[in-house]
Amino acid sequence: MSVLWAWFFLILATYPWLFAADLVSSTLASSGLNYFITGAALIAPCRRLKRWQAVLFAGCVGFMFEAYRPIPNGTVAISLVTLAILLGNYRSYLRTSLGMIQAAVVVNAAAAIIWFTASAYLCEAPTDIYNAIYQAALQGTLSGLVGLIIIMPLATTQNWIMDLMGVPSAQDLL
């Protein structure tokens, strides 16, 4: 199979993870917290895929997250694409495991805060701004934590798929 389609198969491989996160959110729905891993899912692909492929991957993952959620159209997709471009341009930082973990925590938390804020925009503006900030911080922290836990197994799956597809390893790049 051509390397060109790596991004697509990567999505198929990543989707079970995303779906599992949704199911966890679903069973814990009464907590009102979302177990968000979409941001963390960007790290491994951005480390190895070509830039355009990473961008496509990020866009699709973003749109998938948005599909069932009341968020201004395209907000998450665009922010994930932006994050993917940033990650791609600073991929030298992602070579080590530590760098990947750090990136996963930061990117996941940042993306979570972005969607949380964006969806607050559609909901009638929250009256209590402090509470809104607190809620966003809570969601962000949780997402950071989830990113920290999930990145290793997730990246392993994704790397395995990329190896299968013959995507060059991160060390070969640059």
Binding site: R69, P70, S119
Partner: peptide, 13 residues
């Protein structure tokens, strides 16, 4: 099928 909630929305599918 599933439930989805955050501070800003509560929905089921």
């Amino acid at each position: 099928i599933s439930r989805d909630s955050s501070s800003w929305w509560q929905k089921i599918i």
